[in-house]
Amino acid sequence: MDVAGKKILIAGGAGFIGTNLAIALAGRGARLRLTTHQKAPQVEIDGAETVQADLRLPEHCARVVEGMDYVFLCAAHTSGAAVIRATPLVHVTPNVLINTLMLEAAHRAKVAKFCFISSGAAYPPTDDRPVSEGEMFDGDPHSVYYAAGWMKRYAEILCRTYAEKIAEPMATIVIRPSNVYGPYDKFDFAVSHVTAALVRRVIERHRPLEVWGTGGDVRDLIYVDDFIEGLLAAFAVDEPFLALNLCSGKGYSVRQILKQILYVDGYDDADVRYDPSRPSTIPVRLMDNSAARRLVGFEARTSLADGLRRTIAWYKAHHVGDRGRPARS
């Protein structure tokens, strides 16, 4: 799909996915509008329009989608494992409002195509077997993600409804990412996910270096540049509705991830201490990437070592107080 000259809204343009997507689309000649809420943009993009908006309000949603060709909904209320366990409903109300109001506003504005970023956490548990797209509604999400998972599922149902079940449909695509990491991620310990939190602890030379859980939890990690490449390839598919996993298809334990970060950043004498009493989420979450390979020829190309090396280099270049040593080449 040629996006040059197309008017594209990125809702959540100051966030991790939104920022990286904006950089990629700007490089392809798109005319961008980015929404922000409480967070300022992380980058300045020539020609991009920035609009402050509260997407829980219908009038704000209607204003930001006006005149747009495509909409990417990257805005979401997110947090880490401790917050999810302590307050399971924290993601429900704000995200239900954002998702439903943005879909309605985009449809009324006659947007040609709408992209919703869902989550692999919405899938039912499949133990150590990678989960495929058709299994989304085969059972409840894991108990830790029950509320947030059903919130994502409801938005997916709405996307399909707008694409297939109404008189004047709007094409939609649902992207289900695995654990995306890389530059512009959230590195605040209160809200960061495991990879970003470990990167920061290693760079700051925490001693002891505390890791929540046993270190045995397994996740599929995908570097953000690969994810954005897959996202844009999937968005170009000429189908009224599509739901697709975007993942690496490889699982890494938290111990393996930390070991690689320690090596890349040269923290050879780290005093690592695992704390099983601290909250983690689910033991194993793996995703099947065969549909993305078949439909759009997508396969993640960045190795874990290379992705972590780039992430560490970016963090050191953009955050004050780096006490780490140069990353290994």
Score class of each variant (00 low, 15 high):
17 I>L: 15
219 R>G: 04
269 D>H: 09
167 A>E: 14
325 R>N: 13
273 R>S: 05
111 V>K: 08
108 R>H: 15
43 V>S: 10
13 G>K: 02
155 A>G: 14
36 T>A: 05
214 T>I: 14
186 K>A: 14
41 P>L: 08
128 D>Y: 09
262 L>C: 06
64 V>L: 09
49 E>C: 06
217 D>H: 11
255 R>I: 01
147 A>I: 02
297 G>N: 06
122 A>S: 15
202 V>S: 07
41 P>W: 03
18 G>K: 02
173 I>T: 11
108 R>N: 15
95 N>L: 09
225 D>S: 08
136 M>E: 12
250 K>E: 13
191 V>C: 10
228 I>S: 00
220 D>Y: 00
194 V>C: 07
196 A>Y: 00
316 K>W: 07
269 D>C: 04
258 L>T: 10
126 T>V: 14
276 P>S: 09
44 E>N: 15
31 R>V: 15
54 D>A: 12
45 I>P: 07
79 S>F: 06
56 R>Q: 15
220 D>R: 01
208 P>S: 05
316 K>T: 08
35 T>Q: 03
187 F>G: 02
128 D>I: 12
133 E>C: 11
294 R>P: 01
84 I>S: 10
18 G>F: 01
290 S>D: 08
55 L>W: 01
298 F>V: 00
229 E>I: 00
189 F>R: 12
70 Y>I: 00
228 I>R: 00
265 D>Q: 12
45 I>D: 04
5 G>Q: 07
273 R>K: 09
283 P>F: 05
109 A>H: 09
280 S>P: 01
319 H>P: 11
88 P>T: 12
89 L>F: 12
